[in-house]
């Protein structure tokens, strides 16, 4: 297990290094960064002064080294528009995105996994039809379209939920979510829900017909014991990886959903930063979300190893 974790950790670091490389050189490829920082009618002297001040006149490799050194401590420079450190802006928006992503994941799990279990355990039944339908709908309906429809139905027509924005309430100094998160979280989690239904269903169906389940029956175990000890435990293994990957994707913030629902999270910040050509901020967000995804993948791999002894004792 130790070797397994170490090798995964090494891979993760290499990926992050690759991400930094791409982020840095992408910017260089889009043109002279100085032109974004000075006004349109700046004199060549002024431009040169900025170039000097920002260190853009140094060799690329030196700049890249600086960039990496900054990135390691979370310093991506100041946002061009907000005139404050990019990382501070990210951390300020992070709670909103975490709230949205976590709610979305829980909603998806709460609906997707039980539905998948019911469908997979009773193939051909009404539950199964429902599960297959939910899987199909979840994976095919575009979430931005669904968000708009939900706003029309639940906010405009019924008035049950707010149409946009994030409201929170403070309890003992802790910020807690309110019903404002329900609508965007459902729209955001729909795809994940679809995936979970499909994978849970197929995992259960596959495991039910495994030889070891027949062995369990031949030992005289009850349906319930077999379901819990032999089927669920094995079905959980593929689900771990899906939940891990999906959570990473949800946490990176959704530009569509956060924009449509005016949710003050990372996706919203990114959309704004791209519109403003605020490259320091875009770089910071790109790196930060990569970090989140890579970290979650690493944790997923570890959880996978804990759940499956074939991996744990594989080396």
């Amino acid at each position: 297990m130790q070797r397994y974790i170490l090798s995964r950790l090494f891979q993760s670091i290499m990926i992050l290094f690759g991400v930094l490389f791409i982020i840095f050189f992408m910017l260089q490829a889009t043109g002279d960064p100085v032109s974004l920082m000075v006004s349109r009618n700046a004199s060549p002297e002024e431009i040169e002064a900025v170039r000097e001040a920002m260190g853009f006149n140094r060799p690329l490799i030196v700049q890249f080294g600086d960039f990496i050194a900054g990135a390691v401590v979370g310093d991506f420079g100041d946002s061009l528009r907000h005139k404050q450190p990019a990382m501070d802006l990210i951390l300020e928006r992070l709670p909103a995105t975490v709230e949205l992503a976590t709610t979305a994941l829980f909603m998806a799990m709460l609906i997707g996994i039980p539905l998948g279990l019911l469908g997979g355990s009773n193939p051909g039944s009404l539950w199964d039809t429902l599960a297959r339908g939910a899987g199909l709908i979840g994976q095919t309906i575009p979430n931005f379209w669904l968000a708009l429809i939900l706003i029309i139905v639940f906010a405009v027509k019924l008035g049950w939920l707010p149409a946009f924005g994030r409201e929170t309430w403070q309890f003992l100094g802790i910020t807690l979510p309110t019903r404002s998160v329900i609508l965007p979280a459902f729209a955001l989690g729909l795809f994940t829900m679809g995936q979970l239904v499909r994978f849970t269903r197929s995992a259960v169906m596959e495991i039910r017909s495994e030889d070891f389940v027949r062995t369990a029956y031949s030992k005289g175990l009850s349906d319930r014991q077999i379901y819990i000890r032999h089927i669920l435990r094995n079905a959980a293994i593929p689900l771990i990886s899906i939940i891990g990957v999906q959570f990473g994707y949800l946490l990176s913030g959704s530009i569509y959903i956060e924009t449509i629902c005016s949710w003050p999270g990372l996706g919203n910040l990114l959309a704004e930063a791209i519109g403003n050509r605020d490259f320091a901020l875009v770089q910071a967000i790109a790196f930060f979300t990569s970090l989140v995804v890579v970290t979650l993948n690493l944790l997923t791999d570890i959880a996978y190893g804990l759940a499956d002894p074939r991996i744990r004792y594989g080396d």
Binding site: E210, D211, F212, R214, T215, A216, Y217, S218, K219, G220, L221, S222, R229, H230, R233, N234, I237, A307, D308, P309, R310
Partner: peptide, 24 residues
């Protein structure tokens, strides 16, 4: 029948690798 299975009649299956639960 579940009281008979495993209790009074035992079963040995062909391929023990697939007939045993891999995560138990």
């Amino acid at each position: 029948i579940s009281r008979v299975r495993g209790g009074r009649i035992g079963f040995i299956f062909q391929d023990a690798l697939s007939a045993l639960n891999p995560v138990m």
